[in-house]
Design a protein around this nucleic acid. Sequence first.
DNA 1: TTAGCTGCAAAGTATTTGCAGTGGT
DNA 2: ACCACTGCAAATACTTTGCAGCTAA
Lengths: 146, 146
Amino acid sequence: MNCSQRLTNEEAFEKLQVALKSQGARLTSPRKLILEAALKSKKPFSAEALLSVLKSQADLATIYRNLGFFNEIGLISRVDIGGETAVYEVSSKNENHHHHYFVCKSCGKTETLESCSMTAVEAILKKKGFKNLSHRLEFTGLCASC
Amino acid sequence: MNCSQRLTNEEAFEKLQVALKSQGARLTSPRKLILEAALKSKKPFSAEALLSVLKSQADLATIYRNLGFFNEIGLISRVDIGGETAVYEVSSKNENHHHHYFVCKSCGKTETLESCSMTAVEAILKKKGFKNLSHRLEFTGLCASC
DNA sequence: TTAGCTGCAAAGTATTTGCAGTGGT
DNA sequence: ACCACTGCAAATACTTTGCAGCTAA
């Protein structure tokens, strides 16, 4: 079972068009390239990671600005795993979704987990040779006063 | 059911003594104060938060260094919720433990969750007036090559 | 044509590091 | 006395912001 159903490219661009129109924003070349690069990524990515894919096709400041914009319109989510650097991922179809990752405490490598079952995930990780497993569950949303 | 059984003060200081001895480190006044402040905190805390509790009793650099030290010896864990700022918490008794939080996407307020059941947690959060709930599961450990 | 957007550079934060002096053991 | 640790300041890393020119609508 896969419970992290990401938006498809078509759904993403459609959502983008709606947002652009509703707030008088524009579909520029860097904006398009950044979203395409984000959609292409199989795992959570940092701003720097997109820069190295896009090379001189987009400025780092522009990447940050657009990741912020996409985050606001719900196209991608800032997920903050790993620590030093902010990490983003393409949003899921439904609001009440799951995100599953494995993060190595030593080298910082991250891996996206496909299964939805806690025990299945643990079995898969152990089979792959991961050790010292621990996990953490984080709920996000809006608190009563927001 | 409460599955985030934190170390007690005695257990924490005992663990510290063992680590200090095993690597020739010393129990200094700032180190002791920082750990005490960490133990006192009911929820995940940032380095700045400890500074404002400790005022001029410890330098910010010293706080960062000691949080790193405590993290290495397994006394506290760096958990990186919320984004901009690194957040730490006192470790749990058993290695394979859970951490449950709620983080408000708007104001950044965090709240520690006591229950271990996913559905129970959701029910509690809804009852408290939290909206737009989403969640994320993160596994940490060492990857095969580390 | 007219704003929104971009690239560049400069400014902010959060965190780390170098160093000379301090203090545990 | 020795050497780990501290405070202070400077450095670094990541991200945001100001601004003048560019460009989508």
